[in-house]
């Protein structure tokens, strides 16, 4: 198992190199001079040239790329062009806010998604199933920012129940300010989780071992929980993991709509001001998070499915059950 984890961690290196390569070149090949953005329109040509040399922009692109990688390997993600603060510090400062939002969003997705998916599968082709399938289609199709706007229009402006902007301080205020963004973020994921839960339950529901379980005389609840859900879990965990990764990185729109002080908004601002080190740093950080979430998902598989577990441990036939 440890060997597997180390292998997966090593595999992250080429992934991160790929990510840095793509983001670095996209950012540098788009038009706009960072020096001009930093110094403003009024800056003289000499000042601009001096600034470019200071930022290292006079060197060829490929040299700059390798300089960047070299610094990154030494734990230095550089300074923000905009405010000359450490990129790493700013990312670390904003990340917890994004994590809170993503966790809240995925909780919404789980609490709605899994039960609705199970019911939908067990009552396939009934009114209940059709309704939830239509709703989840709407949920998947609805753009996040649009839903966010609608929700704040209703609950913040019309009813005045909840704040629509910013992140509250203190537990209660935080929770109150979290509700709308979390709902916005969670709805799309919930819809995906519903569909995944339903389809993976439907694959399991007609399996022979379900008949075996029923023939034992155990209750339908037990059959659903122990026999169906446990076997249906792998695709569900995959979907939830991917959704969580997306929520971590893709909360930009939601964070912007709700002025949530997270990584997503930091990235949007940085992209607008062509703050290359900031965008790079945030992207690399999110890529690492995404890979870690995926690794965790793959490890969770082995707790769910003994067949995968024995593959990981390579111990073959003699492996005994790991107590979870």
């Amino acid at each position: 198992m440890w060997k597997y984890i180390v292998k997966r961690l090593l595999l992250m290196i080429p992934i991160l190199l790929g990510v840095t390569f793509i983001v670095f070149f996209i950012m540098n090949l788009t038009p706009g001079d960072p020096a001009a953005i930093i110094l403003g329109d009024q800056a003289s040509a000499e000042a601009l040239a001096a600034k470019r040399i200071e930022l290292g922009l006079d060197k060829p692109l490929i040299v700059r790329y390798f300089t960047y990688i070299w610094d990154m390997l030494h734990g230095d993600l550089g300074l923000s062009y905009k405010n000359q603060l450490s990129v790493w510090d700013q990312v670390i400062d904003k990340f917890p806010n994004t994590a809170i939002l993503a966790i809240a969003g995925i909780l919404v997705a789980l609490v709605i998604g899994i039960p609705v998916g199970i019911i939908s599968a067990k009552k396939q082709y009934t009114v209940l199933d059709n309704t939830s399938m239509i709703l989840s289609l709407v949920g998947v199709s609805m753009p996040n920012f649009w839903l966010g706007l609608l929700l704040s229009l209703l609950f913040a402006l019309k009813l005045g129940w909840l704040p629509s902007q910013g992140m509250g301080t203190g537990f209660v205020a935080l929770l109150r300010s979290l509700i709308l963004p979390a709902l916005t973020l969670g709805t799309g994921s919930a819809a995906t989780v519903v569909r995944m839960t339903r389809s993976s339950m439907l694959e399991v529901i007609r399996q022979d071992y379900i008949s075996t379980a029923r023939a034992k005389g155990i209750s339908e609840k037990q059959v659903t929980k122990r026999h169906m859900l446990k076997n249906a879990m792998i695709p569900i965990v995959t979907a939830v993991g991917l959704q969580f990764g997306q929520l971590l990185g893709g909360a930009m729109l939601t964070e912007t709509v709700f002025s949530w002080p997270g990584l997503g908004r930091l990235m949007v601002d940085s992209i607008n001001s062509k703050d290359i080190p900031m965008v790079m740093g945030a992207t690399i950080f999110l890529a690492i998070m995404f890979s870690l979430v995926n690794l965790i998902v793959d490890l969770v598989y082995s707790f769910i499915d003994p067949r995968i577990r024995s593959q990981y441990s390579k111990a073959g036939f003699k492996s005994r059950r790991i107590k979870v």
Partner: peptide
């Protein structure tokens, strides 16, 4: 006909327990 994610012991115990 056997549930792949439960041990055979658990699957036998289940019917006895129920």
């Amino acid at each position: 006909s056997l549930n792949p994610v439960l041990t055979v012991g658990e699957q036998i115990e289940e019917v006895i327990q129920s």
